[in-house]
Amino acid sequence: MFRYFVRRLLQGVLTFFGATFIVYALMFANQSDPLQALAGERPLPENVRQALTERYHLDDPFILQYGYYMKGLLTGDFGTSLTNRPILEMMEQAWPTTIRLSFIAIIIAVLIAVTAGIVSAIRRGGVFDNTTLVITLLLLSMPIVVLAPLAQLIFGMRLQWVPATAGADSGLFALVLPAFVLSSLVIATQLRVTRASVAENLRSDYVRTARAKGLADRRVIGVHVLRNSLIPVVTLIGTDLGNLMAGAIVTEGVFNIPGVGFMLVRGIRTEDGPLVVGFVSILVIVFLVVNLVVDLLYAVLDPRIRYE
């Protein structure tokens, strides 16, 4: 396990530097006037221009710029927005909402996906299986930009089951609809993977052994099959997080939830470059860290890797 950990950790560090370098290069490299690009169409007063040049070390060679940027990332200094607020402070304000939203979404997704996945794997080819197959196909093909406004229109405005928007201090109930919308992004893949994995495991020899041991079906599936089947589902969490981030940006924008995605959308709309750069950097770091943790978790779940 130690060797796997070390190898994975080294890979993680490499990916971290590579990814942040790309993000930084995308934003600043080879641009005739990077400052104007940061500020978008708005006019840039000379004092702001100077402050920004200093802030981003734009007079230094590119690789040094990246060095300063990395130093900032590692010491928690993500800069200030064009509205002169520290990015970190804005982030601290925004992330609890987003975490709460994503957490509800993940719980909804896992509950539905794993349960439905198991049931359709057991009754493969049945009515339930075919229905979920069609539903997952529909979910997969619904871009979040379609799903979020439509869900808001139908459930929030026409049926009025839930509030159409969730402001700064609305309760958990207001988050239910956005969380469902968000979870739909990952339900389909999770369900499909669970189904495929359970179906494959159900056919395996160890299931026959477990039945020959006189174990009840509940235990055979709930303990023996489930533990094996969840391994690929857990590894999905890493990629799911990327989807959830993308989803949160749109969902929070549509439902007016003042989270990370909402701020990012506002940053894009107001052409606040430093804000976008800072937020994207933080999100990329979170994504990388979570993926690393998931990979390590994978080793805990599967002893075959642990003892490699």
């Binding site: 395996s204 020899d205 160890y206 026959r208 052994t209 477990a210 020959a212 023996h224 533990r227 094996n228 391994i231 779940l301 599967d302 002893p303 075959r304």
Partner: peptide, 11 residues
């Protein structure tokens, strides 16, 4: 069973 490796649960 015949193949003990696959007949035992790997995890």
């Amino acid at each position: 069973f015949q193949d003990a490796l696959s007949a035992l649960n790997p995890v």
